[in-house]
């Protein structure tokens, strides 16, 4: 209802998109891990202006994460190895979900784990929670190698997706890693397993060496590269995946402006996530949402959905 009003105000522009039956007031969401559960950024961003808030990954128990330094700047981007520090699903359900429920936006909970049982425990625990979707992180590069292999192996991805779908009460988004030879193979596997949507890309595994100190810039040695520098890779992968599957795609990877977001939408994404840009522009999400509206007016686009995959 509110969405219709919002659309009316802006001269018949309709920014709504639909993912697995969940209607978002606009296609702009936050990328997991860059926005906490919204609380810290609520000082800068009116959360109800967002299509959805995607939370930082949550596991079945608290995770302490990696040693510091956990972050390094790279040319036109950054590299992180936070290691999915999180309070565990119990605290998350008691504290973070009620917090987000105050706002008229959709809640997408990112789920992480070391093993299928851990993912399944979180998914099961979320069954009766008032969340709109869950995003399964099978692609974080900052935990042990065995874990990453999960999202890199098509058979594993299909199997895990199917296991999750069997018990999930909310639509399931599988978040894909770009650290593979052919991302469409993994995307098809997730779709075959029953994924309702796909999100991509997670960060690209990288390394930075501090030459003065002759050491790794990150305590974890490797980290996930993100930010504007990775955007062309992400756009290419969204385009490839959009042509390989029929489920909706949430595109991300270096989005900082409306033009960036529109690249992903034109390449085939139904929605987009703003991540690293939040760190250097806390109001980036809102600027992207407003910029998409401006673009629609300038190009006389009535429904944002007309733009999805419009460049072929």
């Amino acid at each position: 209802m509110e969405m219709r009003q919002a659309a009316d105000e802006k001269q018949t522009i309709d920014t709504r998109v639909c993912i697995a039956g969940v209607e978002l007031k606009n296609p702009v969401m936050t990328a997991s891990g860059t926005f906490g559960s919204g609380q810290e950024y609520s000082e800068f961003v009116d959360l109800k202006r967002l299509g959805a808030v995607v939370t930082k990954g949550v596991a079945n128990v608290p995770w302490a994460g990696n040693p510091t330094p956990r972050i390094a700047e790279t040319y036109g981007g950054m590299m992180n190895a936070i290691g999915l520090q999180n309070p565990g699903i119990d605290v998350f359900c008691e504290r973070d979900i009620p917090y987000l429920q105050q706002f008229d936006t959709k809640i997408i909970v990112n789920v992480c784990g070391h093993a299928p049982e851990e993912y399944l425990a979180v998914v099961e625990r979320l069954a009766d929670e008032p969340i709109d979707m869950m995003e399964i992180n099978i692609s974080c590069p900052n935990v042990n190698a065995g874990f990453l292999a999960f999202g890199q192996d098509a058979k594993n991805v299909e199997k895990l997706t199917a296991q999750i779908k069997k018990i999930a009460k909310q639509p399931v988004i599988m978040k894909l890693t770009p650290n593979v030879t052919d991302i469409t193979e993994i995307a098809r596997a997730a779709e075959a397993g029953g994924a309702d949507a796909l999100s991509l890309i997670n960060t690209l595994t990288g390394m930075k060496i501090d030459v003065e100190r002759q050491t790794f810039a990150l305590a974890n040695k490797t980290g996930g590269v993100s930010g504007p520098a990775v955007k062309p890779i992400a756009v290419r992968m969204v385009y490839q995946v959009a042509n390989a599957v029929s489920v909706p795609i949430i595109g991300m990877g270096g989005i900082a402006t409306a033009a960036d977001a529109l690249e992903f939408i034109l390449a085939g994404a139904t929605a987009v996530s703003v991540g690293t840009a939040n760190f250097y522009n806390p109001t980036a999400t809102i600027e992207v949402a407003e910029g998409i509206e401006d673009y629609m007016r300038r190009h006389n686009v009535k429904r944002v959905t007309e733009l999805i995959g419009a460049v072929r």
């Binding site: 906490g36 956990r70 992180n80 565990g88």
Partner: peptide
């Protein structure tokens, strides 16, 4: 002092080891 990204407590990059369990993640960071 620690390497930071967001500066406002969201990204969890700049943690230090704390004696007590922290209020955010319920670990010791």
């Amino acid at each position: 002092e620690e390497r930071m990204a967001c500066g406002i407590g969201a990204c969890l990059a700049c943690v230090c080891q704390s004696k007590e369990v922290d209020g955010h993640s319920h670990v010791h960071n």
